[in-house]
Design a binder for these strands. Structure first.
Length: 114
DNA sequence: AATCTGACGGGCA
DNA sequence: GTGCCCGCCAGAT
């Protein structure tokens, strides 16, 4: 019973990313680089974004933005407005696809999860 | 097999 | 302070 094809995802790295993102409290956000750094792959910020490509519904990807607080991934959602809409719904001030209170709602896994 | 792109980040001009 | 370029890892063509 051999595996015909290796799954594109399902790696420890990806699973860890999902796990961390799922741990993001409501009304808080984090950056790809922060997650990457927490996992030890500080240069793998891109990979974190790639991991989100197959992010399950359990993963609040809308709470993950780039280091600028910009909703870069909003275009990848089913609806481009889902991301900012959901963030606003959680109390996050989003204007022009950018989080105004980014520094205030920023959630650092390396500090919170340690 | 080789090349380019891609949900990023940081450094330098 | 803003803009551009390079680096990183993996997947897709």
């Amino acid at each position: 019973m051999a595996v015909h094809k290796k799954k594109p995802v399902e790696n420890n790295f990806f699973s860890d990313v999902y796990e961390v993102v799922k741990l993001i409290p409501k009304g808080r956000v984090t950056s790809y680089g922060a997650i990457a750094h927490y996992l030890g792959t500080k240069s793998g910020a891109r990979m974190v974004g790639w991991a989100m490509h197959g992010c399950p519904k359990d993963v609040p990807a809308h709470r993950v933005v780039n280091s600028s607080g910009l909703l870069t991934g909003k275009h990848h959602f089913k609806n481009a407005q889902t991301m900012e809409k959901r963030l606003k719904r959680e109390g996050v001030k989003v204007l022009n696809d950018k989080i105004m209170t980014f520094k205030e709602v920023f959630w650092n896994p390396s500090e919170e999860l340690a």
